[in-house]
Amino acid sequence: MNPLPLLLTLSSLLFALGLLAVLTRRNAILILVGIELMLNAANINFIAFWRYGSVEFDLTGPLFVMFSIAIAAAEAAVGLAIILMVFRHTRSTDLNRLDSLHG
């Protein structure tokens, strides 16, 4: 049995869960967690397509995943720095309390 559809279902579920977290959570750190879930869903896709779909031998899939893991780490570092900066000003990471900008 070709496990590709199963893996794609898993990654889609993971992506949807991440998106759900982003849309419903009001805490900046939990939104960041949601974004990481979405990025990792894409990584599963790359590996799955490479392992079960590729016609010739190449390493594009795993290579992409290596890079995207590194970028996700950099993104988390930058994100936490920004959240820390916001926390210094407002003493909270709750997005509902960020309302200094409006028209």
């Binding site: 790359f46 397509f49 899939g61």
Partner: peptide, 12 residues
């Protein structure tokens, strides 16, 4: 994340 997921599908 959307961009990356989209790329993974196009790669597939």
């Amino acid at each position: 994340a959307f961009f990356l997921f989209g790329l993974s599908l196009l790669y597939g």
